[in-house]
Simulated assay, not measured.
Amino acid sequence: MRIYTRSGDKGKTSLIYGDRVAKNDIRVEAYGTCDEANSAIGLALSHLTREDWTDKDHFLAVMQKIQTILFHVGAELATPKGKDVQWRLKKEHIDDLEKNIDQLDQELTPLKNFILPSGHEASAGLHLARTVVRRAERTAVALEDELDNPLVVSYLNRLSDFLFVAARYVNKHVGGKETLLDPDV
């Protein structure tokens, strides 16, 4: 299989099942933003290779599962309405995110102020991924009438919440410093 096909040289791309659309189509923006978020998560995690904490392997396994699910969410977004999807997002995937949020959050000091994305490189990267997921969510909302699976929007919403907590969790375990928002600046 070639990396380049030249089929997109005129500003069109194929959705799953072969429908051709403009590369600036809202559906392409939605699944492309999921891909961008997935890459941001991967980049953030690449900064954890030198760090060590007792739960690191479990945390990385959770993150890899999330990256895989996010890849599948992108595939759902790339599938035209009414067409079969090989893999479908389920409520249990959202439930898993909520369970993981609760588990990580138990170890964190409750926030009384907003925080700025900061600290360890991995934490800052997870904050970046969170904002990209928020954009994917906004784009998916614009597609809601064209989506067969309404859980896509819910999953992206919960994923951004998870990434916020995960960024704080990483800072705690690798000694990153959270920067509180100074309201008087």
Rank of each mutant, 00 (worst) to 15 (best):
K99E: 11
I3C: 02
G82V: 12
A129L: 06
D105W: 00
D84R: 14
E146Y: 07
F162R: 08
A122E: 05
F114I: 10
S46I: 15
L116Q: 12
S39P: 03
G11D: 15
Y31K: 05
T13Y: 05
L111N: 08
D84L: 13
P150C: 06
E146A: 12
V174C: 01
I101L: 12
R134G: 05
K65R: 15
F59C: 09
H47C: 13
V73Y: 08
I69W: 01
T109I: 07
E29C: 14
H58T: 09
T13R: 10
N100Q: 04
K90D: 12
T131D: 00
L60K: 13
L181F: 14
N24L: 01
E98I: 14
N157I: 00
P150E: 02
K83D: 00
Y17D: 07
H93P: 01
G125A: 02
Q64Y: 07
A78T: 05
H58F: 00
F71A: 13
Q64I: 07
N24V: 03
D148Q: 13
F162Q: 12
D148M: 14
I115T: 09
D25N: 15
L180A: 04
A37M: 08
K90V: 13
D105R: 00
N149P: 00
Y4R: 03
S14P: 01
V21Y: 09
S14H: 07
I94V: 12
T68E: 10
P150D: 03
E146V: 05
L45G: 13
A30S: 11
D55R: 15
V73D: 12
H47G: 08
H127K: 02
A78I: 10
I94Y: 02
N100D: 01
V132W: 05
E137I: 04
A40S: 09
D57S: 09
I69D: 11
L159Q: 02
M63C: 15
R27S: 12
D145Q: 14
